[in-house]
Design a binder for these strands. Structure first.
Lengths: 147, 147
DNA sequence: CGAATCGTAACATATATAGTTACATGAAAC
DNA sequence: GTTTCATGTAACTATATATGTTACGATTCG
C-alpha cells in the first residue's frame, strides 16, 4: 500500500505560500513539491472546501491562505483532507461473529485507539505558525553556517 | 492502499490453535479465517522462521504453537511478520533539500514516532495468554447468557 | 479576443496485500 | 512401496489506493 503523503504535501505548499505576498499558482506549487499542477489542485481543493485557502482564477490568479497561521493546526488540515486512515495495519474483519476474533479485535483496537489519540493530540498542538517559525530558525542557521 | 491484516490473522489463527490439542492444518485455519490455505502457509511461515510455531508435513500434520503463550506478545508477532509499516500516512520525501520540507518532516516525524512508540509499548504488554483468557471470559459470558 | 489559471472528469501507473493455481517435497497409513 | 495428506513455494491474478497524466471546460484579466 502506498502511503498517503497529502498532509505532508499541503504543509509544504502552505508554508511556501506563507512566504509569498501574492497568490501562488498550482504550477509553481507543483514545481516546489515535484508533482503535477492537477495533483496540487485536487489536494488544495479540499483545503478550499474547508475554508483554509482561496483560489483565484484567471490571469495573475492562484492560491492564497485565508486563515491565521496560528489558527491552523496539523489536525485541522488532517480533517480538511477527509481524515484519511492513519494506520496501515488493521483488523481482518471489523464485525466478527467468532469470539476468538472478537478478543483479537478488542485488543488491537484498544492499542490503535490510544496511539491514534496521541497522534491527533500532537497534531492539534502544532500550527502552521509553529512550522513557519521552525523554518525561519533553520533558515537563519544555514545563513550563519555559510559565513 | 489495502490495510495489512496479517497481525490480526495470525492472532486469530494462534488462538484457535491454542484451543486444539494436536496440530491444525492450513486448510482448517483457512476456513476459520475465511481465506485460502496458501495464504495461511505464507503468513504462518513467517512465524515458523521466528521459532513461534512448527509445521509438520504429511498425514496428520499441520501447525503447532512451539512457545509459551505468556511469552508471545503482540509485539513479538509484529516483529515476526517483518515489522510492516504501521502508518498509512507519511512524508512525501524522506530526505529533502528544501528547508521548508525539512521543517514539515521534523514536525510530522516527531508525532509519528511518539504514536508508534506508544503502540509498540501496548503491543509488548499484551500476550497470547492474555487474549486466550479474554476469549475464555467471553465464552463463559455467552454460555451464561444462553441459560 | 486571447492568454493564464482554476475545476474536474477520465484514464494510466505504481505498489502492496490478498487470493489462486500448480506442482514439488516430505511423512504417515495401508 | 504406493497412496494420501500435508506443507513449501513459485508464479500469476485480483483488488484497493495514492499518485500521475491528459484533456477540456470555465473564468478572469489585459
Amino acid at each position: 500500500m502506498k502511503r498517503d503523503s497529502r498532509l505532508s504535501s499541503v504543509l509544504h505548499a502552505l508554508l511556501h505560500m506563507a512566504e509569498q505576498d501574492g497568490p501562488v499558482t498550482s504550477e509553481a506549487l507543483g514545481r516546489c513539491l515535484g508533482t503535477n499542477p492537477v495533483v496540487v489542485r485536487r489536494t488544495m481543493g479540499l483545503l478550499r472546501e474547508a475554508g483554509l485557502v482561496t483560489a483565484e482564477r484567471g490571469h495573475a490568479g492562484g492560491w492564497r491562505i485565508s486563515a491565521d497561521l496560528a489558527a491552523v493546526s496539523l489536525r485541522r488540515l488532517h480533517e480538511a483532507l477527509g481524515e484519511p486512515a492513519i494506520f496501515a495495519i488493521g483488523n481482518r474483519n471489523e464485525t466478527p461473529e467468532c469470539l476468538v476474533e472478537q478478543s483479537v479485535n478488542a485488543a488491537l483496537e484498544g492499542a490503535f485507539a490510544e496511539a491514534e489519540a496521541l497522534l491527533l493530540e500532537r497534531f492539534a498542538e502544532v500550527t502552521l505558525a509553529d512550522l513557519a517559525e521552525d523554518f525561519a530558525r533553520r533558515h537563519a542557521q544555514r545563513r550563519a553556517a555559510k559565513e
